[in-house]
Design a protein around this nucleic acid. Structure first.
Length: 840
DNA sequence: ATGAACGTAAGC
DNA sequence: GCTTACGTTCAT
C-alpha cells in the first residue's frame, strides 16, 4: 500500500544494519516507514525558532549555510504524527479516528508498528486475539500484534528504530503523555480488552489519577537514569540510548551483572515529587520485602493491574491517611526550602529499603532474570519515557546485538508477569541512579566517601511527572536588587534563605569565611565539592524538549463528577502562600493539584544551594518547574548536568553557581542561556583569566557566514566574581562583552586594584555608565585612588569597599563631599558608600 | 561514538 | 515548485 511504497534507501540500509536483529523479514515486508511530521500543535511546534541553537545557526535565514537541515532545537515536535498521506496497509484508507465511539476510535485509527513499520487499522488486522502493544510515546505508534506475537518484542526488536523515535518523550518537557492521556484515557478500565485486539498499554496516562505499580517505571524522569544504572542495555531500545548516553558513563559489565539481579519493583510513583499516596509506608515496605519477594517468585502481582480507578483511588486515599498520620512529611527537615530537599526527604525512606533489597538481590539468584517479551516492551516504554538526557534517538546499537543471545536465553527462563517487569526495572533504575553518583564522583577522582550514605540516600527516585509547566519562556521576573536575585520569589523563601543573617554576609561571604576573618590568604575551605566530570558536552545534538504546555485542568474534579467551584487561578493564589515544601506535599493530594503545584509561577526560584549531590531527578524536577532563578551554589553539579539544565531552561535569568567547579561552570561556554541576567561565579574553583576568556569569548564554532561576535553572556547585568583570581585581562573582557553590566562583585579578588577600577570607569567603556553597584570589599590592593575613578561613573549607586585595607574612611568622606554636588551619597557603613534615595 | 551532511518526504 | 526538516549515511 502507499504506506509501504516509499521505501527510503536509508530505511532499507538501516534494517540491514540490524541484521543481528533477525527481524528483517517483517521489516522488509512492510518495510519502508513513513516519515513522521510535525503535529503543529504542541508547544514546540508553535514556538518560533530560537535563532541561537546549532541548527538555527545553520539555517539560511540565520545566515548559516543550510546544510544541516534540522529543525530548531526548541522546536522539536513532541508528538510527531503520521503524514496525512498515510493509509492502512490493508484497506488503503486513512485513519478514521473521527469515529464518534470512543471505543471504536482506537480500532479505526491508523497505527504504525515500530517494528515492521506497517501502518494499519487495528480493525483491519486479522489476528484479533493477539495483543498489540501501544506505544504511548508516539501518536499512532504500537507494536502490532503480528510483531508482538512473533516474539519480536525482545531486545532484538528494540534495536529497530521505530518511527519517530527521535521524539520519544524522553525529556522532561515532553508532552506526549499528556496528549496521549486525553486520547486514551478512557481505555484505562480494561486494558486488555480494547476492541478487536487486546492492547497492552505500555505506559500510563496522565488521565490515570494514580499510577499503577506496573506502569510506574515508565514514569522515570529524564535524568533519572543517568549513568550507571544498569538498565539492561539489551532491553533499552537503541533509539533511546543516544541521549541517555549523555550522562551515561558506566560500563557494560555492570549492566550485564545488574541484569542478572532480580529487582524489587521500583515504584516510580515514589519518584514523583509528591509521593503518591497509595504507596506503602516505610514500615510497610520494610515488612513486606520478603513477602514481596515471595510474591514475585510466584509472579503474583502485588497490586492488581486491573483494579479499576475507583478502587485504586480508595486505596490510595487510605494509604495516604495512614501514611500522613504516622509519617509526617516534615520530620527532620530543617533547612529545607527547596525542591530537592522536599524530594529527597521522601526518598530517603525508600532508599533504605532499596538498599536492603539490593543486597538481597545478590542472593536471590537468577530465577528472576530479566524480562520477556512484554516486559521488554514495557521497558522500552519506560526508557523512552524516561527523559533522561541519555535518552534519545539512537544509533543501531552494537552492544544490543551482542547481548541479544543472553537476553533471549533469559527470556526463556523467565515468566513475564507485568509486575516482574516492574520489579526488574525498578531495581535497575535505582542501581542506575546510584551508579550515576558513583561514576560522577569517580570521575572526579573524588571518592564518594565523603558522603557515601547521603549520596545514596539522596538519590531521587522521584519521577517528576511531567505535567505542567510552562514553556520555558521565562516570565519576566525581575532579577535583583542589592542582593536579590530572582524576581517574583516569595517573601517567605527569601526570609528563610537569609536565615537570620544579612543577605550581604550570607551571600557575599562564603560559608567558611566569616566577615571578620576577611583575609583571603587564609585558605579557603571549600565544601568538598565532588568535582564533576568533564565529559564532552554534546547537548544540542540531542533533542531538547521544551517543557510541556498541555494546560492543566482549570477546575478540580470532584468525586461526584462535578468540578470544584474555584478555578485554577484561585487555587494558585492560595498555593502561592505555601512554601516549596508545602507545595510538594500538596502535590500529593491529587493529580490536579500535582499539576497545579508545579506551576512555574510557584517556582520562580529554586534553591539547591549546598546540596551535596545534584541528582538526575532533581534536574528533571527543575526543568519541569522552569525557574527563573536557579541556585546551584556549592553543589557538585557536573558539566553535563549543568549543560543539560541550561539548555532546557530557556527562561532562566538568574544562575547562581558560586563554589562550583570550573569544570561544571564551563558548561556555560557551550550552552546558551539567552535571557541570563545574573550570573554568580563566586569562588568557582579553577576560574581564572583563561577560563574567563573561554566563558566570555564569543562562540568560536561558528561557520563562515554565521559568525556571532557576541558573547553568550552579553546580556548579563549582574556578575558576581568574588573570590576569583582574575586580573585586569578578565575585566577587559567583561567590559567588552557585557555592555549591560550594572552590578559587579569583585570582592576577595586579590588581583583587583586601582588600575582595575580605572579600566572599569575609563572613558569609552560601557561599564562606566552601566555600573550601578560595585563590590570591591576585601580587595586589599584597592586604594583611595579608586574612589576618584568612581567619580566618573555616571550611574554608580553603591560602592562597597569594606575591609579594603588601603581605603581610608577619609577618602570615602571626601568622595561623598565631592559627589554631593551631583549625587548625594552616604556612608552606610564603614567604607560602604550608598547613594541616597536610591533603591537598588 | 559523534556530529555533519544530505536525499528526499511532506506540506503548502 | 518551494520550503522545511526527518531519517539516514558519511566523515571524523
Amino acid at each position: 500500500m502507499a504506506a509501504s511504497t516509499a521505501t527510503t534507501p536509508a530505511a532499507t540500509t538501516s534494517s540491514s544494519t540490524a541484521t543481528a536483529v533477525k527481524l528483517p523479514s517483517s521489516r522488509t515486508s512492510s518495510g519502508a516507514r513513513r516519515r513522521r511530521t510535525r503535529c503543529r500543535k504542541c508547544e514546540a511546534c508553535v514556538r518560533t525558532e530560537c535563532g541561537e541553537c546549532h541548527f538555527c545557526k545553520d539555517m539560511k535565514k540565520f545566515g548559516g549555510p543550510g546544510r544541516m537541515k534540522q529543525s530548531c532545537i526548541m522546536r522539536q515536535c513532541i508528538a510527531p504524527v503520521l503524514p496525512h498521506t498515510a493509509v492502512c496497509v490493508v484497506c488503503g484508507e486513512a485513519g478514521k479516528e473521527d469515529t464518534l465511539d470512543e471505543d471504536e476510535k482506537f480500532n479505526a485509527m491508523l497505527m504504525e508498528c515500530s517494528i515492521c513499520n506497517e501502518i494499519i487499522h487495528p480493525n483491519c488486522l486479522k489476528m484479533k486475539d493477539t495483543a498489540g502493544v501501544v506505544n504511548d510515546e508516539l501518536p499512532n505508534c504500537w507494536e502490532c500484534p503480528k510483531c508482538n506475537y512473533a516474539g519480536k518484542t525482545g531486545k532484538a526488536c528494540k534495536q529497530k528504530r521505530g518511527p519517530g523515535f527521535k521524539y520519544a518523550s524522553n525529556l522532561p518537557g515532553s508532552l506526549l503523555r499528556e496528549q496521549k492521556a486525553g486520547r486514551d484515557g478512557r481505555e484505562e478500565g480494561d486494558q486488555t480488552s480494547t476492541g478487536a485486539s487486546s492492547i497492552k498499554r505500555k505506559i500510563e496516562r496522565e488521565e490515570t489519577p494514580r499510577l499503577k505499580a506496573e506502569d510506574l517505571p515508565s514514569r522515570l524522569p529524564p535524568l533519572l537514569s543517568p549513568s550507571g544504572l544498569p538498565r539492561p542495555r539489551s532491553e533499552v531500545p537503541n533509539f533511546l540510548r543516544k541521549k541517555r548516553k549523555l550522562f551515561d558513563d558506566d560500563e557494560e559489565e555492570e549492566e550485564a551483572s545488574a541484569k542478572k539481579k532480580p529487582k524489587k519493583p521500583w515504584r516510580p510513583e515514589e519518584a514523583l515529587i509528591p509521593k503518591l499516596s497509595y504507596m506503602k509506608t516505610e514500615e510497610e515496605e520494610d515488612n513486606s520485602d520478603e513477602e514481596e519477594e515471595r510474591q514475585e517468585k510466584r509472579e503474583l502481582p502485588r497490586r492488581s493491574f486491573k483494579k479499576d480507578y475507583s478502587t485504586v483511588r480508595k486505596e490510595e486515599d487510605h494509604e495516604e491517611e495512614r501514611r500522613e498520620a504516622r509519617d509526617p512529611p516534615f520530620r527532620s527537615l530543617k533547612d529545607f526550602n527547596t525542591l530537592r530537599k522536599e524530594e529527597d526527604l521522601e526518598e530517603e525512606k525508600e532508599e533504605d529499603d532499596e538498599e536492603e533489597e539490593e543486597d538481597n538481590n545478590g542472593k536471590r539468584g537468577r530465577d528472576s532474570s530479566p524480562a520477556l517479551k512484554n516486559i521488554s516492551l514495557s521497558l522500552e516504554s519506560d526508557a523512552s519515557r524516561c527523559s533522561s538526557p541519555r535518552a534519545g534517538p539512537s544509533s543501531e546499537g552494537s552492544e544490543t546485538q551482542e547481548k541479544a543471545p543472553r537476553a533471549r536465553a533469559k527470556r526463556h527462563r523467565r515468566k513475564p508477569p507485568n509486575h516482574q517487569l516492574s520489579a526488574e526495572l525498578s531495581k535497575q533504575l535505582n542501581m542506575e541512579i546510584r551508579r550515576t553518583e558513583h561514576s560522577l564522583a569517580n570521575e572526579n577522582q573524588q571518592p564518594l566517601k565523603s558522603e557515601p550514605e547521603d549520596s545514596e540516600n539522596e538519590e531521587p527516585k522521584r519521577g517528576l511527572r511531567n505535567g505542567t509547566a510552562g514553556n520555558g519562556g521565562g516570565g519576566g521576573g525581575v532579577e535583583r536588587g542589592a542582593g536579590g536575585e530572582g524576581g517574583g520569589e516569595r517573601p517567605h523563601l527569601r526570609a528563610r534563605e537569609m536565615n537570620g543573617t544579612s543577605w550581604e554576609l550570607r551571600h557575599f561571604y562564603p560559608p567558611q569565611i566569616t566577615p571578620l576573618g576577611l583575609n583571603r590568604s587564609s585558605p579557603t575551605v571549600r565544601p568538598i565539592p565532588a568535582r564533576s566530570p568533564p565529559k564532552c558536552v554534546q547537548m544540542e545534538r540531542h533533542v531538547i524538549r521544551p517543557p510541556p504546555i498541555c494546560p492543566p485542568p482549570d477546575r478540580l474534579p470532584l468525586a461526584d463528577g462535578r468540578n470544584h467551584i474555584a478555578p485554577r487561578e484561585a487555587w494558585l493564589a492560595i498555593f502561592s502562600h505555601l512554601s516549596h515544601r508545602e507545595l510538594c506535599v500538596s502535590m500529593r493530594v491529587c493529580r490536579t493539584w500535582n499539576r497545579w503545584c508545579c506551576d512555574k509561577r510557584l517556582w520562580t526560584r529554586i534553591d539547591l544551594k549546598r546540596c551535596k549531590s545534584i541528582t538526575p531527578l532533581m534536574l528533571s524536577g527543575i526543568i519541569r518547574r522552569q525557574p527563573i532563578t536557579l541556585d546551584l551554589s556549592w553543589t557538585n553539579i557536573s558539566k553535563k548536568q549543568l549543560s543539560w539544565l541550561i539548555n532546557r531552561l530557556p527562561g532562566l535569568r538568574v544562575l547562581l553557581l558560586s563554589g562550583c567547579s570550573w569544570v561544571a561552570v564551563s558548561a556555560l561556554c557551550t550552552s546558551s542561556c539567552p535571557l541570563l541576567r545574573t550570573l554568580d561565579l563566586q569562588w568557582v574553583e579553577g576560574l581564572k583569566d583563561p577560563q574567563m576568556r573561554d566563558l566570555l569569548s564569543p562562540p568560536t564554532d561558528n561557520r563562515p557566514g554565521q559568525m556571532d561576535t557576541r558573547s553568550k553572556l552579553r546580556n548579563v547585568t549582574d556578575l558576581r566574581l568574588a573570590g576569583l583570581d582574575i586580573t585586569d585581562s578578565s575585566l577587559r573582557l567583561i567590559i567588552k562583552n557585557m555592555p549591560l553590566l550594572s552590578h559587579l562583585n569583585l570582592s576577595y579578588c586579590n588581583h583587583i586594584n586601582d588600575q582595575s577600577v580605572n579600566l572599569l570607569t575609563a572613558a569609552g567603556t560601557t561599564t562606566r555608565d552601566s555600573l550601578t553597584d560595585v563590590n570591591l570589599s576585601v580587595c586589599n590592593r584597592v586604594t583611595d585612588q579608586s574612589l576618584s575613578y568612581f567619580k566618573r561613573c555616571g550611574s554608580i549607586c553603591h560602592i562597597d569597599l569594606r575591609f579594603c585595607k588601603q581605603v581610608s574612611r577619609q577618602a570615602c568622606e571626601r568622595f561623598i563631599a565631592e559627589m554631593s554636588v551631583i549625587v548625594p551619597f552616604q556612608l552606610q557603613e564603614d567604607k560602604l558608600l550608598q547613594k541616597l534615595h536610591s533603591t537598588p
